[in-house]
């Protein structure tokens, strides 16, 4: 591990050269994927962090021949900002009682969260190489057996109702911490979410934040083809939430929104992040197939080069 990252990172580093790869990859057998165990490239901003998260997620799915990389790429910027000063947390004390609770409801995109937590120092980056492998605790849907993970998901539509319960606990116990739940758009098909969306304002849970990774693609088609959500912001508003919409890859916009929650006292907050599924890798962007496909070693190399993080 390199130096622990400072808790607060600016969106864009000021007055420093772009991050360069300092690690050297050990050579593996032909066709194998080498996973870097050398120190991470210098991360000076949340934008650097997002690139490192994407690079790790890509390496992990490639190595494990796993699916779901595009949804990890689409939410990397949200995670990078959350973990660059928005969330109150202590990597060396994952169960610090006053931490903010972060819940990943779209558990299939766990690679990005595992990468974030490792980069933040919750566990060694080298463990990421075990993702999805026999005997690993890094399950291919997010697992609470991993340090820094609050809640296992994988079945969609559980994160927000669970988050509501946590937010209620904080309210009843008069605790200062907040709950941030990250949802997918396809997941909003589930009635369980709307039951929670209905109930949260009823109890004035302004300590609850829902972030929607609105990438407009789900499993078997686009959101517009399957069950159109538009106008999504109006739906949340009609259910008495405070709502903001942001460009989901714009770190300053995300940060400005998240740093100022709750936006209206007594109301839960919903941040609708307009994102691109597969963001950052041109051949994955907006492609349904990349919900399923796993990159070949050549595609991985291409993707890492595009992210400025070559192995």
């Amino acid at each position: 591990m390199s130096e622990p990252l400072p808790m607060n990172l600016p969106s864009v580093a000021v007055g420093v050269p772009p991050a360069v790869e300092s690690g050297v990859s050990p050579g593996g057998p032909p066709g194998s994927v080498t996973v870097r165990t050398e120190p991470a490239p210098t991360i000076r901003s949340s934008v650097d962090l997002a690139a490192a998260i994407r690079a790790h997620a890509l390496r992990m799915v490639t190595r494990a021949k796993a699916s779901h990389v595009a949804g990890a790429l689409s939410m990397a910027d949200l995670l990078a900002v959350l973990y660059s000063g928005v969330l109150r947390h202590r990597p060396d004390q994952p169960d610090w009682p006053d931490r903010d609770r972060f819940l990943l409801s779209k558990g299939h995109s766990c690679t990005a969260v595992y990468a974030t937590l490792a980069l933040r120092g919750f566990f060694p980056e080298s463990e990421l190489a075990t993702y999805g492998q026999d005997g690993s605790r890094l399950m291919a849907h997010i697992s609470h057996k991993v340090p820094g993970v609050e809640f296992s998901t994988g079945s969609l539509g559980h994160g927000l109702p669970f988050g509501l319960g946590k937010a209620l606990a904080a309210q009843r116990d008069r605790k200062p911490w907040r709950v941030f739940t990250l949802l997918s758009d396809g997941e909003l098909d589930e009635g369980s979410n709307w039951e929670a969306i209905l109930l949260a304002p009823q109890h004035r849970l302004d300590n609850l934040v829902a972030l929607v990774d609105y990438n407009k693609i789900q499993s078997l088609g686009s959101v517009a083809e399957v069950a159109e959500l538009h106008p999504l912001a109006d739906k949340f508003r009609a259910f008495r939430w405070a709502v903001r919409e942001v460009a989901g890859h714009d770190h300053n916009a995300i940060r400005d929104a998240l740093e100022t929650v709750p936006w209206e006292p007594g109301r839960p907050s919903c941040l609708i992040a307009h994102t691109t599924k597969g963001r950052g890798v041109d051949f994955m962007q907006d492609q349904l197939a990349w919900h399923y496909k796993s990159p070949s070693p050549a595609q991985l190399a291409d993707a890492l080069r595009q992210l400025g993080c070559p192995d």
């Binding site: 396809g186 789900q218 078997l220």
Partner: peptide, 27 residues
Amino acid sequence: DLGYSVVEPFASEFPDRFLNAGVAEQN
């Protein structure tokens, strides 16, 4: 909302006898 590269032949042969109900199993 499942069955990518499995259910398409059914959907194209019987479009009126196919529905993607979305990620909503109770419904």
